[in-house]
Each structure stands twice: as C-alpha cells, then as structure tokens.
Simulated assay, not measured.
Amino acid sequence: RTKWLIALCLCVLVMLLEFLTYHMAYRIGYDEGMLTTPPVVVQKSDEKAMQNLSRFMADVFASRESLAGILDNREERLAWIRDPELRTETAWGLTRELISRGGAILALPAARELIDAGYAAGRCQVWAPRADAVAKALLAEHQYTSAYDYLKTAEEGYEKEGMTEPLVRTLQTMSSIDQMLNRNEQANMLLQRAVDAASHLGPDALPVRSRLLAAQGRLARTTGRIPESREYFKKALALCSQPDKTTGDLALASISMGEAMLEAGRKEEARELFLKGLSGSENASYLLNDCLNALRGLARISTEQGNYEEALAYLYQAEGAARGVLPADHAFWAGLYDQRGWVNILR
C-alpha cells in the first residue's frame, strides 16, 4: 500500500507540474502574440479575407439576379461585416447598385425593409432622400403606384425633419401622379399643402412658388374652372416670368410658364418655353403629364399659325409618349383626339 501511495503521489506531482508549465507557456505565448502577431499568421488571415471578398464581389457584379440574391439573404451574406451601421450602409449601397442596373422591382423588398428600419431608428433625415431616390427610379419605369408609396414615405420624413424644399417638390410630384390617374381632388389638396409649405421658404423661392401657382392654374383649367385658372397663371407670371434653366424642376417651371404665356396670347414666348421645358425633362418621367401638355400647346400654336403638318407631328409625339403609360379612360385621350380631329379638318 505504501508503494502504491508513493506512486500515486508522484503521478499527481508530475501532472501538476505539466499543467503549470503548459499554463505558464500558454499565457506567455498569448501575451507575446497579442503584442507581435507573427507575419505568417497575418499573411494567411489577409489571404483568406481577400478570397472571401473576391467571391463576394464576383457575386455582386455577376448579374442582377445574383445581386438580388445577396440582398434577399443579406443577414447571412453580410455577416462578415461586424459593425451594424456599416452593414446597413453596405446593404443600401447594394440596393442602390441594383436599382442603377434597372432592377428597381427586384430591389424593392430590401429597400422597404432598410427604409422602415431607418425611420424606426429616428434617422428620417438620412432615409427620406433615399426613399425619394427609390421613387424616382420607379417613376422612370412608369411604376406610378409603387413610386407613390415611396414618395409618401419621403414626404412623411421631410415633414418630420422640417426639410421644406424637398417636401414641396415631393408634394408636387405626388400631385402630378394624382392628376395622371384622374384623382383631381387629391391632387388639389396636395398642391395646397405644397403652397402652404412653400410660404415658409425664403425670398429665393420665387421660382418654386410660381411653379406651384402655375400647377394650380393648370389643375383649375383641367377641372373646368377657367377664370380661376387664369388668375393663377397671372400670379405665376408676376413672380417668375422667365426661368433661365431647364433641368429638373425648372423644366416643369418652363412648361408651366409656357402655358401661362399661351393663355396670355404670347405665343412665341410660349413656344420657346415649351421647347426648353421638353429638352430639360428627358430623364424625369414624373413630368410626363406636363410634357404632354407642352406638346399639345406647341400643336395649338402651330395650328393657329397654319402649320398643320407640324401640329400633327407634335400630337403624334404626344400620343406615342402616353401610349402604354396613361390609362385608357384618362381625360388626355379625349382631348388629344379632339384636337387632332380639328387640325385635320383645318388642313
């Protein structure tokens, strides 16, 4: 028994010494490793990271469907990004890339989730313009109903953050869509809200106010309130008679002022403004309704000047632009064919 007891004690002593030696060596090695990582470890880690990144980027640029697949499974595919904010920004960057490749419809689920999460986190100032950007991409593809939902989201964010200028622009765009869809009462209400919001802008916002007045005049004329529409046009002309540029919203201002000039009998000035507005609205599909009005205005001027072939050319151009976009029961079609019939009779 004594021999076995001595042997057991020796075994325990050896195991204790081995454990203490291993633990001390491990701690020393760990501390040294934390201070100076061996170059081989760094190199292998970098190589692995680059391989993962290369595979990820290859999937991103492979096709729209591949990119959409990453977004649909982004919790898994972007898990290698540890910072939550950076992961969200990366997801939005991928969403924007998919939209830019003509995949706006494929990007909608991810866009909606990201925007809603941004609003829930109280970051409306960042995400409202992004909702606006999604809406513009949808408008470019004539997806008016989906675009309207994102515009409404952007409008709520702009209003909450007190971002007046983009709020006015968004309200007017929503109003234009309502007019295209024959929702004139809703369009009028939104225009009035835009006018009320624009009253808080500074003196540099005269072009914005004149554009809104012209839009109100056009809506009044559409609904048969002719004297009221002329009053709106007169006020619009008094505020801003000659917009100098024709890009973006100012293209709409040019068309609106052209309509005002035509109502006032100043045909040559109206023609010049219509042409400027049309040249500056090529990439703004939300201006379709206004572009159609400009083309019909140009046809009216050409008809009154006896240039019937040119008038018909403008009317055929308007028909081509509206075909497949405006619904068959839209008031535009009756007015267009009526005008074309009179031009043919005069010819």
Score class of each variant (00 low, 15 high):
124 C>M: 10
119 Y>V: 08
111 A>K: 04
103 G>E: 06
147 A>F: 10
141 E>I: 09
137 A>Q: 03
108 L>N: 03
128 A>R: 04
164 T>P: 05
165 E>W: 14
157 G>F: 01
117 A>I: 01
127 W>F: 14
131 A>P: 04
156 E>Y: 13
117 A>N: 08
116 D>I: 02
122 G>D: 09
102 G>D: 13
110 A>L: 01
151 L>H: 12
150 Y>T: 09
119 Y>A: 03
106 L>G: 00
127 W>D: 00
140 A>Q: 13
142 H>Q: 15
121 A>P: 09
125 Q>R: 15
151 L>R: 11
158 Y>Q: 04
148 Y>Q: 12
149 D>V: 14
139 L>W: 13
106 L>Y: 06
138 L>N: 06
128 A>H: 06
105 I>K: 15
101 R>M: 09
113 E>D: 05
105 I>L: 14
123 R>H: 07
147 A>H: 06
142 H>E: 15
117 A>T: 10
143 Q>L: 14
154 A>Y: 02
108 L>C: 03
153 T>Y: 05
120 A>E: 10
154 A>K: 04
133 A>P: 10
105 I>S: 13
118 G>T: 06
128 A>D: 08
140 A>V: 07
131 A>K: 02
152 K>M: 12
115 I>N: 00
108 L>W: 08
130 R>D: 08
133 A>D: 07
120 A>L: 10
150 Y>Q: 09
153 T>A: 14
112 R>S: 00
132 D>Q: 14
142 H>S: 13
156 E>C: 13
153 T>S: 10
124 C>D: 15
107 A>H: 03
154 A>D: 08
160 K>C: 09
120 A>V: 05
104 A>N: 09
163 M>E: 12
114 L>H: 04
145 T>N: 12
133 A>C: 04
134 V>Y: 00
128 A>T: 04
109 P>E: 01
104 A>C: 12
121 A>G: 10
125 Q>E: 15
101 R>T: 05
162 G>A: 05
123 R>A: 12
162 G>R: 05
138 L>H: 03
112 R>F: 00
165 E>A: 12
164 T>M: 08
132 D>E: 13
129 P>V: 08
119 Y>W: 01
150 Y>I: 08
102 G>A: 09
125 Q>K: 13
123 R>W: 06
148 Y>M: 14
162 G>D: 06
139 L>M: 08
138 L>Q: 04
143 Q>N: 15
104 A>F: 06
146 S>E: 15
140 A>S: 13
115 I>H: 00
137 A>E: 02
134 V>P: 00
136 K>S: 07
131 A>L: 03
102 G>S: 07
118 G>E: 03
109 P>M: 05
151 L>Q: 14
140 A>W: 11
157 G>S: 07
156 E>I: 05
112 R>N: 04
112 R>P: 00
162 G>I: 02
113 E>W: 01
108 L>F: 05
161 E>H: 03
150 Y>G: 11
139 L>N: 12
139 L>F: 07
115 I>Y: 01
134 V>T: 07
115 I>S: 02
103 G>C: 05
126 V>D: 13
111 A>W: 02
152 K>A: 13
135 A>R: 02
124 C>K: 11
156 E>V: 11
114 L>Y: 00
110 A>H: 00
138 L>P: 01
163 M>P: 01
144 Y>I: 10
152 K>E: 15
137 A>M: 02
